[in-house]
Computed example of a mutant assay.
Amino acid sequence: MDDSLASAAHQIAERVWPLFKRLPKTIYHILVVNDHYDDQFNFFFEIYRPHFRTHSYPLYSMSNQQLDKLETLLRLLREQEGLQINIDFRGFGNQRWPESQRRIVSHSYQAPTFKQEPIIKNSAVSPTMSAPVRLPKYHDEEATKIASAFFKNEYIDYGMSKWHGFRIAELNEVENEFAALPIEVPQNHQSQFAIQSLLKLSIDQDQPVHLQLQFGGRCHGISGMILGTTEQTAFIKPAHQHQLALPLKLICHGELLVNNDNDRDQRSESL
């Protein structure tokens, strides 16, 4: 047996397998064409589906001067495991196979026929709605190239900026809550260390404080008892109001009050 023919049969089978998807209402077959112009046999894999164009994929070519080798190649191709596909011929005229002396049955092109369901007029569903949706199918290598080109040329990674909207919404909520606080003339700006010391002293001595918050280009004042603090937040309970959580970075000035009277004329200590 010619090893080149066995290799050719394996090569044809390897090209057919990715295309032979066994879809319903689909006809698959291998077409062998005797090309008298180029003096060669051309192999094609053809796929017929209703409502779709016929797809023809080239598989292999060999010289048409050796009909006995073509017969051997087809026999080897039919012996490929699981490859049970019809083989049709075109352009062979009245030629016969050298070994079996059977006539090579070739025919002109004729589109396959499918049994179609009759269309019922006045149907609630339009006939065009039953046509299958054609989606592009790619091999793994081609799909990888398309995905790489998309991420390289079209995809935009906004990184941390995509969280900017959530951050703005959070700040707006805080500002809206403090917007009702009275506007005051800003006092001297204190450091974060001085403000944290003042808050700790207020908790230890159980004394109220008056704080100024700087945001939105304005200075707002608030007075009350400090319930506790964290590294970034101070919790204050104003008189006749619910508890508020104040971001420390917004506090620009603070003073201890003598008693629970929140009148600013009674302040006794300022840091």
Rank of each mutant, 00 (worst) to 15 (best):
L250V: 03
F43D: 00
Y37K: 13
V133D: 06
G254I: 02
Y60P: 02
T54D: 12
K152N: 14
V105R: 12
P24S: 02
T26K: 00
N176K: 13
R102K: 13
N176C: 11
S130I: 08
H220E: 10
F45C: 00
H189R: 10
L201V: 07
A169H: 10
E154H: 07
K137W: 14
N176R: 14
V125W: 04
H240N: 14
V258I: 11
C252E: 08
P50S: 04
N172V: 14
M225F: 11
F92M: 01
F193C: 14
L198H: 08
Q205N: 15
L171M: 07
L73N: 00
M62F: 03
T229E: 02
A8P: 02
G165V: 08
Y109P: 03
S148R: 11
I104Y: 00
F150W: 13
G159N: 00
N176V: 08
Q190C: 04
A194H: 11
S7N: 12
Q187I: 04
Y155T: 09
I168E: 08
R103P: 03
I236S: 06
Q65G: 12
S108K: 15
Q116C: 12
L256N: 03
A143Q: 11
D157W: 15
G82F: 09
P50T: 02
A169M: 13
D206S: 08
Q66G: 07
S130W: 14
S268L: 09
Q192G: 09
L74C: 03
Y28E: 02
